[in-house]
Design a binder for these strands. Structure first.
Lengths: 350, 350
DNA sequence: CTGTTAGCGCTTTCAG
DNA sequence: CTGAAAGCGCTAACAG
């Protein structure tokens, strides 16, 4: 191998704006403008410049840009997207809304406690973000305070049962749980359990809804609430159902905090020989793609997850530069999707 | 409400390093050092400074830091984590390895084509990243070239069947597919189909393995390969299986490119009254959490996804500042997990 | 429409 | 161990 042709090492000399400017015979700022505000540069020059940019492989240095303009063009997204399958659709919505803009997205996974969230938010703040999307988990005064004094617009997503510091978009989880529980009652189930994973604002609201409806009928039994503070999964659903039926063989239905749990519960019922929906009704939450495909198909509550993400990003973009507005709250609504797993009246599936 | 006490607006005056320095009665650089290299500042001063930092709520400006030090402390991760459930574990592995360092992660979703990947990689490069984790999808000369000349270490993850530009960690997808196909043969299945979603390097390698094994037995039939270039999902699995059995009712097993497809296939079998594993064997891929919980449980191939992410980040961290090394390749191996869905000899589950 | 000047907030020299 | 000077690469503000 000829030494001179050796592959370049990592840090190759960087092409800067002035390099391009020099090569194109103009000043740096003109190149800068040609790139960011093409209409402010005469067509001829613009073309020349863009050509040189292309040739030299110039790529703007975002750090320098952020420092000079005090605008990082960054949207911080703090959601459990790496932990919870449900948030993937939300993130896609955000991405799709942001794609056409020159904004970029930086994700972070919320930690376990409010303190960790604070740290991560502060870190976002340190980057002069254009906006932040945040999924509240726990109420925490320190967090609330931080959000109040955020240096940029913040949208809290998923739940709208509490007035946000600034903006919120999501659904009312209490109402959703009420609808699900009422549906189970209507199908004739009476000993309705609740299967839950991670305990956060939203699951608490759902518990409230579930409880309120059952108490209204004198059917609430705290022993039927089976919850473990761990991330929802199919395995957990199977486990919780097994635990439920061992302790309370007379339970005849379950409202699950997530479709993963519902699917696990379904599998466990099959394993235990409990016929669904005849002997046992199952209602999930989230309407994941497999809910409609499962056999029997799973009744679930559909949330406009993608739309929530999309709207959140949209609100952020609109709020840019507008100064702080009065709290805004958007309820995108949910939809109960009745399927086989609760269709008791229809008789057994098989 | 007293005007003066009104909530501060978005852009509150930022505390800078020199503000802190002034308040602490030292120079800016000393504060900077106290924060980054505490051991180079006398204990007394250090304490004072950190106290002032805390009090004033100072947070370093990452853009300024990146610009001045030419080190963004950023790790760029280009994986389909928002699209593919399988990558969530990988991302967790990366996060876990990076957590203890002062590096940060920036995610991006690969686009549809190689060109889009190039754009996103270039964008990462523009931020002076400390390293990049990349999931190759398609072979593309432009992409290869870009990776060769990357201004930072790059780890290509998931597949190790090709020599990487620099570093790679993953498994050999061809071998994995061979093992799965051989397993199905051993269980007595003969008309073995392939169900696939997105077509990329890895699925192509799996197809090769599947084909090689069947051809070895004179059992390969291209008509049994059912693939759609769309993201893998439970719904797609059900659809592909239905399509398969309509066209080829004699098919007696399926090797699925992902467990979502396998689960969908299982549901569809149940719907069609095909008993699994007696009438039809199903082998998935990825060993998602539900594979072992399903009823019947799903045979699958387990990949060390978390470890792949962890190791990738680790390699990046070690490679920092080391200059370019000869290509490194780490094969973390896979594991076939036989379960009920292919246990033909054991008879029907129910 | 184009250029000049100044400076973003921090860190790198290089001195003390 | 601490500080002074210089500048990272870019863009805002103002001139022409």
């Amino acid at each position: 191998m000829i030494p001179g042709t050796r592959r370049r090492r990592h840090r190759q000399e960087k092409v800067t704006l002035s390099d391009v400017a020099q090569a194109a015979g103009v000043s740096a700022i003109t190149v800068s403008r040609a790139l960011r505000e093409p209409e402010k540069v005469s067509p001829g020059l613009r073309e020349t410049i863009l050509m040189v940019v292309e040739q030299m492989g110039y790529v703007p240095d975002m750090a320098a840009r952020a420092l000079a303009s005090k605008d990082s063009g960054l949207i911080g997204v703090l959601t459990p997207g790496l932990t919870s399958y449900a948030f993937i659709a939300v993130m896609r919505g955000i991405e799709d809304r942001v794609r056409s803009t020159d904004l970029r997205i930086q994700y972070a996974n919320p930690g376990d406690d409010g303190e960790d969230d604070c740290r991560k938010l502060r870190f976002f703040f340190s980057q002069n973000p254009a906006g932040i999307v945040y999924v509240g988990r726990q109420h925490d005064p320190a967090l609330d305070d931080l959000l109040q004094h955020a240096p940029c617009p913040v949208v809290e997503i998923m739940d709208v049962s509490r007035t946000p510091a600034e903006m919120a978009v999501g659904i009312d989880h209490r109402l959703a749980a009420e609808a699900a529980t009422r549906h189970l009652l209507e199908q004739g189930y009476r000993r309705i359990a609740l299967l839950g994973g991670i305990i956060d604002n939203r699951s608490r609201r759902r518990l409230e809804g579930y409880r309120a409806v059952l108490e209204g009928q004198g059917l609430f039994d705290p022993d039927l609430v089976q919850s473990i503070d761990g991330s929802a999964s199919v395995g957990l659903g199977a486990h919780l159902l097994e635990r439920l039926l061992t302790a309370h063989p007379d339970a005849d239905a379950a409202f699950c905090h997530s479709d993963d749990l519902a699917l696990g519960a379904l599998f466990e019922c099959q394993r235990l020989g409990r016929r669904v929906p005849t002997d046992f009704g199952i209602c999930g939450f989230n309407d994941f793609d497999y809910a409609g495909v499962a056999y029997p198909s799973l009744t679930s509550v559909r949330l406009p997850r993608y739309e929530i993400g999309f709207r959140a990003a949209d609100m952020l973009i609109r709020a840019t530069g507008a100064g702080r507005q009065p709290p805004t709250l958007i309820d995108l609504g949910f939809q109960l999707i009745p399927r086989q797993s609760t269709a008791r009246s229809a008789g057994p599936v098989s």
